[in-house]
């Protein structure tokens, strides 16, 4: 049955996945090429000192990409479930309902994890030849909250999409917007280091928010 759930989720995201890979690869390649160009035209020192003196992150053009992918994946996975109240079909399947949703979310999170880890790995592989480990760590640790934003926005999108009433969707969206605002407040490198454990805790909690929305759907909550 789990394979069937993964199969269904795959069918929903099979067009999205190559698109996401292309966009991610394209933007990442552009960011890395830009660094390469800086090297070629201005020398290694210009790149190092940009990070050291001017607190540049070098890959800041990738900042909103994980959040965008999380949002789109959430829509691609869960809007089809809510059209014509198709969630009734899903909840009627002979599988524990909260577990069903966790598996569905797990599929989305796994896809996001693969995308984000692949991107981070590509950045690490390219940059470690050019920059000292401290600078590479600085860049990647600065990017970590962006990935967290991607995961959170995916979970929030699922939470909002599965919610049956528009009134609550608005409330949920405001909460999501507040959290996103927090995650994109500062551009300073590694400024979110001390907040990361809280973000992880929030993500663990947010994993269950769509289950709550599904329960409200099942109870027949209406505007």
């Amino acid at each position: 049955m789990r394979k069937a759930i993964i199969y269904k989720e795959w069918i929903k995201v099979r067009l999205f996945t190559p698109l996401a890979v292309s966009v991610l690869a394209g933007f990442t390649a552009y960011a890395l090429l830009r660094i390469g160009r800086m090297y070629a035209f201005n020398g290694a020192g210009s790149v190092w000192l940009a990070v050291l003196d001017r607190n540049a992150v070098l890959i800041d053009n990738l900042k909103y990409l994980p959040a965008l992918l999380g949002l789109l994946l959430g829509l691609v996975q869960f809007v089809p479930e809510m059209q014509q109240n198709r969630l009734k079909l899903t909840l009627h399947l002979p599988f524990l309902q909260s577990r069903m949703l966790l598996w569905m979310l797990g599929c989305g999170l796994a896809l996001l994890a693969v995308l984000f880890i692949a991107q981070a790995a590509a950045i690490w592989i390219c940059l470690r030849w050019l920059l000292a480990p401290e600078l590479v760590a600085r860049i990647l640790m600065t990017a970590l909250p962006w990935y967290a934003a991607g995961v959170l926005l995916y979970l929030f999108t699922a939470w909002i999409a599965v919610e049956p009433t528009w009134r609550r969707r608005l409330f949920d969206a405001l909460v999501a917007a507040g959290v996103m605002r927090l995650l994109f407040m500062s551009d300073y490198p590694r400024t979110y280091d001390t907040l990361l454990p809280w973000i992880a805790l929030l993500a663990a909690c947010a994993l269950f928010f769509p289950i709550y929305s599904a329960d409200r759907f099942r109870r027949g909550c209406q505007d």
Binding site: S98, F171, L174, V175, G178, V179, L182, L202, C205, F208, F209, I211, Y212, D215
Partner: peptide, 21 residues
């Protein structure tokens, strides 16, 4: 479990308000 999740959502909203208001 639903009550716990609802409580967490409300507390999250309360914390956001404690920041934004």
């Amino acid at each position: 479990m639903m009550r716990t999740i609802r409580t967490i959502i409300i507390l999250l909203a309360a914390l956001l308000l404690a920041w934004l208001l």
